[in-house]
Amino acid sequence: MTWEAVREIITMGLVLLSSLMCFAAGVGLIRFPDVLSRLHAATKPQILGLMSIGAAIAVNNPRIGIFALLTAIIIFQGLTAPITAHMVARAAYRSDHLRRDLLIRDELSVSVEQVEQGAAVEDPDGDKR
């Protein structure tokens, strides 16, 4: 059957794309210098990897229930990955796990200083460093 062959090729292409994305995430974890850039390498290619592998499953099992479950998984991952990234980035910035010499501009530090000067009298709720 020609459709079988086409399906095999599509599946293989999607699987290769996904494995490439996982590989890129791993290499990025090793190569990038600080926590914030590692976050970029880690969280992002995974979404594309998961999307492509989900498409591969849907191509191989074209049923409505499978499609719905895959959509749920991808939406779930797409909603939670930014939250994880944001929480980790915030903790990293506050506990100084970043290399400031690599930043060409840091507008957050300016506003942190402003807040500290402005609200020095009030009781800081522990959010400012």
């Binding site: 914030l36 976050l39 970029h40 990955a81 930014p82 990234a85 980035a89 910035y93």
Partner: peptide, 11 residues
């Protein structure tokens, strides 16, 4: 903008 690679919301 956090999902699109290259940018992460820090705060």
């Amino acid at each position: 903008i956090s999902l699109v690679p290259g940018s992460i919301v820090v705060d």
